[in-house]
Structure formats: structure tokens, C-alpha cells
Write a protein that binds this DNA or RNA. Sequence first.
DNA 1: AAAATTACTTACTAGTTAGTAAGTTTTGCA
DNA 2: TGCAAAACTTACTAACTAGTAAGTAATTTT
Lengths: 186, 186
Amino acid sequence: MRSETKDKIAELATELVQQVGYPSLSYQQISSQLGMKNAAVHYHFPSKEDLGLDVVRRDHEVFTKFAASVQGKGHTEQLDAFLSLYQQYLENGNRICMIGASASDYKQLPDSMRQEAAAYLTEVTGWFTRVLEAGKADGAFHFKGSAAGKAALMTSALAGALQHARLIGNDHYLAVVAQLKLELKP
Amino acid sequence: MRSETKDKIAELATELVQQVGYPSLSYQQISSQLGMKNAAVHYHFPSKEDLGLDVVRRDHEVFTKFAASVQGKGHTEQLDAFLSLYQQYLENGNRICMIGASASDYKQLPDSMRQEAAAYLTEVTGWFTRVLEAGKADGAFHFKGSAAGKAALMTSALAGALQHARLIGNDHYLAVVAQLKLELKP
DNA sequence: AAAATTACTTACTAGTTAGTAAGTTTTGCA
DNA sequence: TGCAAAACTTACTAACTAGTAAGTAATTTT
């Protein structure tokens, strides 16, 4: 019987980080929202760094499993699957992605979280690069320059679009996605 | 003799918001760094909302003046001027742009700041749209789809790239800029 | 059944936060 | 020179922050 409470804390903390950021994440908010005491959260995650690191790690794992789950599928299909993953954040309370949240909170992050977030972003851009590269080879995608450059552009555009959508509405995100897909057409 | 102190507070607050975000901006940090007392900052900016709103307004004004200053120049030149404006953030302590900072801190922002940031972003995307549209008409730029869609993509990509550069290095931002410029070539 | 481990609660600390009220100094002006 | 307004300082508050030590109840292991 593994710790359900720890999972619940991590899940809520994940949502809160995507909503308000790591610095504004508080033990009080977590404990009250889960109907427990402050110290109970500290029991599972002694320090805030422990909690924050676990949050980023879990989100990283979600992506890794996602990448494995779409492996072998068509390149357009893989891209669409990623886009709908991000779109869920938008529709679920205008969250931003974990990488974007980590990057904007960067200066307040402990080193362990910085490194984990960097590894996460490196893996995502790597995945994008491979999908784009392969998609170009089999004629599914078209773009100028290197796959790595295009991947860098796309990841940053999507992260930025999620954030900008908060300010000027979800249509902005949809417009960015539409433009990206349009430009990838052969 | 206008208030120099108020300007200095606003300037430091601007830098801090771009570094650590609005929620982590503290009167204590500002006052100690400027060699004054907490209450002195409150004298000029009674509430944190007053300060935060002024910070976004001033940054908005900087952009408005920038846009006016490059008006009439070549479209490629205008775009390059904007890019070097952003690149200064990167080189000056890995700041992120005010709009990106506002968007990621959105859930913690008072309404006045949300509205000001939204107006700011609307103005920036509008400026981009006009520059792209005109640049396409005179053959300086090439892109598929609408200028508005391309503008949405570019603003989000640049904001996201500034943030991602914190995690994986400044080369990421440069790669995104290079890709954007490459794709705009006729 | 006893011992030990897990999962908490109670109660607290030291530090930080925005914000305020009242008093003081500095500055500009008549 | 004297008055008034501007620009502060001193001293404080209430609320919040992460974190801890000690105690308790439940569960698991021996």
C-alpha cells in the first residue's frame, strides 16, 4: 500500500506550480486544501525543495511516458498528440507548462530544480528535433533550416503562447498552433 | 524638480520583476538596495499594486516610444531593432520580458496589472502585425498565412525563448531568432 | 502480544511580508 | 526669514512563510 497522500500532495503542488509558480507555492495552501496539517506535508516532503523537485520530476516523467506511448506513430500524429497535451493545460484553468513555469521562476529555484528543468527541456527539444527530422525525411513536414532550430522555435512558441493566452485569451494559443501547423505543411 | 527617488524605485522594481517576478518583489529588498526605509517606498507607491502597475506602464511606454522611434525605417531594420531590444534582457542578467513575466505571474496579479499587461501585449502584436504585413507587401518578408498569425507566433516564440534560455543557455534564444529570420527570408 | 515503523497532530519558532501612524527633516516658495 | 508642503524615518502590526520538536494513533513486523 503505497502512500496515497504523498501522491495527492504532489499532484496538487503540480497544479499550484503551474498556476501560481514555485515561489508562491505554500505548505499552508496545500495542507488546508487537502484537509491536513502543515506538518503532515513536511512529513512527506521535508523541505520545499524536496517538494518542488518531485513536482518537476513527475512532470518530466509524464512527458517521457508520453513520448514512449506515441513512438512509432505517424509524425503528424505525434505532433498533434503533443499539442493536445498542451491544450489541456489551457482548458484546465489556464495553467502554463512546467518548463515555462520553471523558467520564469528560475531565479528563485534551488539548483536541483534548475537542473531537472533543464534536463526536461533538453529532452523535449530533442524529441521535437527527432520528430521534425523524421517527418521532413518522409515528407510529412516541411521547414527551412535545421530540425534543431525549428524544434527550438516550436517549443518556445508553444510555451510562450500558453502564457500569452492568459493575457489576451485562448484564441492566441490557437492562432499560434494554427500558424505552426500551416508552416509545417509541405 | 521631479522625484528622482520615485524613478529609481520604479527602475529597480522593473529589474526585479523581470528577474524574480511580481509576487517575489518586496518593499524590503527595494528599500535596502536603495539605502532607504521600507516606509519611504510606501510613500511613493502606497500599495504594491501601485508599484506593480507603474512598472508595467513604464515598460509599456518604453515600447511605445521604441515603436515611434523606428517608424518609417525599413521593415527588416525595425524587426532587428526589436530583436536587439530583447537581446539586451538576455545579456543583462537573463531577465525575461515584462509581458512574459506578467503572463507567468498572471494568477497573482491585481486586475489593473492584468489589464495593462494585456493592452501591452495587444500593442506589441499589433505592431508586429503591421511590420510583417508591410514587409510582405514590399518584398522584405515572406510567410504563409496571415500577418496576425505570424505576429502571434513570433511574439510568443521570443518571449518563450528568453525564458528557455535561462534553463539551457543563451544559444537557445539565438537559435530561435536565427530560425525566425531564416523563415522570413523571401 | 510486543516492538517498531508509519503517518500523522499539536504547538511552536524565527523570519518575512505589505502596510500604517506619527514624528522629523529637508526643500521650495512667498 | 518663516511657512508649508514634500520626503522621508522610527516604530509598529497582523498575517503569512518554511520548518521543527514532541507527542499520538494506527499499522505492520517480529
